[in-house]
Amino acid sequence: MKEAILRVKNLCVDFHLDNRIIPAVDGVSFSLAKGETLGLVGESGCGKSVTALTIMRLLQMPPAKIRNGEIYFKGQNLLNMTDEEMRQIRGKNIAMIFQEPMTSLNPVFTIGRQISEVLIQHQNMPKKDALEKSIEMLKLVRIPEPEKVVKQYPHQLSGGMRQRVMIAAALACEPEIIIADEPTTALDVTVEAQILGLINELKSRINSSIIMISHDLGIVAEVSDRVAVMYAGRIVEYGDVHSVFTSPKHPYTKGLLEAIPDINMNRSKRLKEIRGVVPFPDEIKEGCRFKTRCDYVHEKCLAEEPPFIQVGNNQVRCWNYLSQ
């Protein structure tokens, strides 16, 4: 395996609310190799954004609190860094694209300024050069008439255009890691395909690693090298994209795959869905997190949480594979 640029170890993040503690991320570990794209999938509320924001150290604390874990970026634990050290990494070494393009740009600053400020901050670029580079970046993300757009404000652009601007700003300093948190969820399908194509193309150009977060397995399958499937604050299956998609092991992964519509599918066959809803992170105190929705649940699952078990090429948290 190639050298890991990011290594997350046993990350646990709680939200301390008035009357209870919600373990939103509970024991998440994964690594990201240089030039690799890691897909992070799971239903809404399973802790994907919290994981991403913790890596960026952008979570509001309180209410959030990191109970445990280490995040190594090129051998240094990000969680032990001072605010100032972390600030210098953000935007320069690790950049993030957010889920909400409509609200993620500052309404009172021009597009040009919002891209060039990253360059001015991290590369000490003079204002004029930074603006020129911003125009170049806008060209790169295929925004028409970039010279005009740099002078415009966010409200003058569509959602797809705004997300392209976000991508341009995130890529401006050619970061080693890009965290894309559902970059296309708020956009329509044709725009989605364009944006994904763009991210893939730009990634190979600057050879950065990507954490691609999505609740859509189709997207993850398209762009990732490896996949981590999250459920209720934990990773339940982990492996390379081919083996996870062709031979899923965890009942949850199987369920997710069966819920994807297939164009070649027989019309008479109904789409399957996973029964029940995601439990709230603090609902399940013991046993497997998926026990309330699993079709293969047995006694052991109710009492004890499964560890990772190597099954074929995948790591799976499921008691059903213990015998193999």
């Binding site: 605010d83 600030r87 950049a95 909400e100 740009l105 500052n106 990253v118």
Partner: peptide, 14 residues
Amino acid sequence: QDYVRTARSKGLLE
């Protein structure tokens, strides 16, 4: 607001 988080994600001075 989200755009303040974005500004922080760029590594700008506080």
